[in-house]
């Protein structure tokens, strides 16, 4: 499975319309056959300056965009959807190099959508964080 170019362009248009996505230094890319969000880690993403580890909330923000982007693209929305709730588990520290995140729709109901996300650096099979997102659809 591959991501078609128009879908990738649409994903980057959605991210470009979000000022905080720019602050995070994100871009939509293809990874493992699906849309992912890549974050170019910068000094202002670092939570522990002594370990050069990215702050947990920044990693959650990256997964936030992966979930919103995946759901908005699937539903053909013109704007990124905002989540209702998020639950993040941190598995490994995130160091100061690029980090990626993607999302999967677990269930899409009439009013509620549930997605899982993962964030990784070197190996997607060894995520540094996973999360579950809930969205209310209007």
């Amino acid at each position: 499975m591959t991501v078609c170019l128009p879908e990738l362009e649409r994903a980057n248009d959605l991210l470009a319309a979000s000022p905080f996505a720019h602050w995070l230094r994100t871009e939509a890319v293809e990874a493992h056959g699906r849309i992912a969000v890549r974050m170019h880690v910068d000094e202002h993403h670092i939570g522990n300056p002594f370990l050069r580890a990215v702050q947990g909330g920044i990693v959650a923000s990256l997964m936030d965009y992966a979930a919103s982007l995946t759901l908005s693209l699937y539903l053909g929305r013109a704007e990124l959807l905002r989540p209702l709730s998020v639950n993040v588990s941190y598995l490994r520290s995130v160091r100061d190099r690029d980090c990626l995140a993607d999302a999967q729709i677990v269930r899409l109901g009439r009013r509620v959508a549930t997605l899982t996300t993962r964030a990784w650096q070197d190996d997607a099979e060894k995520p540094c964080a996973v999360s579950q997102y809930t969205f209310v659809l209007s």
Binding site: S18, P19, F20, A21, Q55, G56, D64, Y65, V86
Partner: peptide, 26 residues
């Protein structure tokens, strides 16, 4: 701040809230 919003004309992005609250909790 406008550069931290979810989209133009909207409030602060959910990620901003996640990041700052994580810092305050820590």
């Amino acid at each position: 701040r406008d550069d931290l919003t979810f989209r133009e004309g909207a409030g602060l992005a959910p990620g901003v809230l996640l990041t700052v609250l994580d810092g305050v909790f820590g």
